[in-house]
Structure formats: C-alpha cells, structure tokens
Nucleic acid binder design. Structure first.
Lengths: 165, 165
DNA sequence: TTACATTATATAGCAGGCTAATGAATTGTG
DNA sequence: CACAATTCATTAGCCTGCTATATAATGTAA
C-alpha cells in the first residue's frame, strides 16, 4: 500500500497549480520574443530595461530594479552587460556618490525605432487577442497586490485561505 | 527634439506588457513558496519535479522535462541535484541504455506528507481565491495552445495580430 | 553489415534569478 | 562632533533557464 507516499488522489498535480501556469506560460512567451529581440541583440530582461530607460533616461540602478520587480543584485550585472554591449553607460551621481545613474547611449536610443515593431510581431507569434491580454494583466496585478497586502500585514490574524497552489 | 529616441507616446510601457505581468507575478508567487518549500529542503522547480514523480515514479528524464515544460538540458542537472540531496536515484534503463529512469527514494516518498500542506499554506500567503486561480490557469493554457498552434503552422499565411506585447 | 540518421542524456557556456555579505557614502542621533 | 544606522551598489555563491555540442545507443537503409 503506497497510498501514503504517492499521490493516488491527485492532490498535487502540476497542471492544477496556478504558479506553474504563469511560470510556464511566461517562459513560452519569452521564447517567442527571442527571435524578435535578436534583431536588437538584447535579451528579454534587457529589453524590459530599455523600455524603462526610454521612459526615463538617467534613472538609478535601484529604480530599474524596482520597475522590473527584480532584486538590485540582479539588476547590476544586467546593466553591466548592457554597458558592455554599448547600449548604456553608468555614472556615479555627483550629489550622492552611493547612487549610480544609467544613461542610454546613441545606440541605445536608436534601438527604440527597431523596438517599435516588436509588440506587433509578438502578437503575430502568440496570436492572443488584446482583450485576453488586458484581462490577464489585470488579474496578474490583482494577485501581486494581494501578496503585498498580506505581506505587509505583519499582524496576520484572520487570513483565511484556499488551495490555489 | 528627442521624440524619435524616447518613448514620449508611451508605446512601449512595461506595465502594458502581458509577458511582464506573467513573468513578474510568477516570480512573486515563487518567492512566497520559498519559505514553505524550505521545510522540505527543495526549490520550486524541484518541488514540481517531485509532483510529477509522486504521480509516476520511475519516469524518464525527458518525461520530467516535458511535464515541467523545460528543456532536457535543464532537467538533467535539476535531477542531479535532487539525487545529491538523496531524494531520487537515477538508473540506466536495461532495455534501452540511452534512457535514464528517475526513482524516488524513501526520503523522496516521505516528503509527500509534508508537501500536502503546501497548497493550503501558499493560499494563505497569496490570498487568491480559487475561482481566480482556475480562471488564470485556463487563460494561461489557452495562450500556450495558441502559441503551439501558430508555431506548428509552418504555412503561416493569414495570421492577423494585435499588440499584446 | 556498414553507413547514416535518430534518439536520450550529458556537458559547456552564457544570462538571468535569488540570498547573503561587503564596501562606501550619507543620514540620524546622542 | 562622533558613532551608529541606513542606503545604494557590488560581489560571491548557488540554482535555474537557454542553445549548442558531444557521446553513446538504437534504428534504418543501402
């Protein structure tokens, strides 16, 4: 009788896990980005970094990290690689020497024109209609808000739960 | 006039990107898993691997890879780390020496009992109701299907698109 | 049966991700 | 002012992920 050490009842199935659905789908889409971003010679996280810089050039390492919702220690080498590619430059702030500002180079600014076709091309590659995309963004954001809400509730008292795995 | 090299019109904003929403949300949830899985002394991908093995012990490396929707070259070292932790054993198949079967050890089987509380505890940590979770799984799966559909359509002729970024 | 393709796994090299620890600059406080 | 705490960035060490390549076993065709 192995019923205690195997999942005969199917209580822990990978295809029922919300996190797995998001994790595998985001990787599937990222894989579709790859050939498009290859034309700009950047990776997906580097592309996200550029998006932020095209909005606000000269922002700090920490601001890029929080925009991408990644750790600062992940952002530093990411930006260093962009610097090595000649897409950005880094420069210590004069007012506060702890801070490092990230600036687009001419090459980095020029990539913007190439990037403009990426969303359209990706739409072709994944064939997802705009309505579903917007709905998913909304739902994903509501999950992140919920996590933040619970996480900040140091006094976690009456938090009831469900099996959302 | 920098309007050609910066995104004044907001055409490429990170918060409008569906892929970013999935990518950042999946990492946010994975971070909530970490303390729960620390009790089993496994990572999230290792936990997914265990889920598959609790369903079908003794399956091949390639079967684990396809279940997790990761590359086979990612699966091998993942399984090797589980082996080093004493959670699984690997063994060349007798009938076909190319194949490697992965078996749970007693320790690996025992972890199942501990894992049973993970979905509940994660629900507490992220506070997402079951209905939303199921909806997201469905939507994510429909995206993956759409990608497969287009990807397999070598004769991609009349595929119209949208900006789903 | 030799030759060639295919299959299954493993390895190498690179780019993220994370936590933890380090270092340098700034801020806050007694 | 001095010293502690904080802040910002970097580095180190680990675990994913990927592509490309290698290696061995199997399948297939001439």
């Amino acid at each position: 009788m192995k019923s205690c050490t195997t999942d005969a009842k199917g209580l822990l199935k990978i295809e029922d896990q919300m996190c797995f659905a998001l994790y595998s789908t985001s990787r599937a889409i990222t894989k579709q980005y790859a050939p498009l971003l290859a034309k700009l010679d950047v990776t997906y996280p580097q592309y996200l970094t550029l998006m932020v810089l095209w909005q606000r050039d000269g922002i700090l390492v920490q601001e890029i990290a929080s925009s991408l919702e990644i750790d600062q220690a992940t952002a530093t080498p990411l930006i260093q690689r962009l610097e090595k590619s000649g897409i950005v430059t880094r420069q210590r702030s004069k007012e506060d020497e702890r801070k490092v500002q990230v600036f687009l180079t001419a090459k980095g600014r020029d990539l913007y024109k190439l990037a403009l076709s990426v969303p359209h091309d990706l739409g072709c590659a994944i064939g997802v209609d705009d309505k579903l995309a917007k709905k998913l963004i909304k739902e994903a954001n509501s999950i992140k808000r919920s996590i933040q809400r619970i996480g900040s509730a140091t006094d976690d008292k009456d938090l009831d739960q469900v099996n959302t795995g």
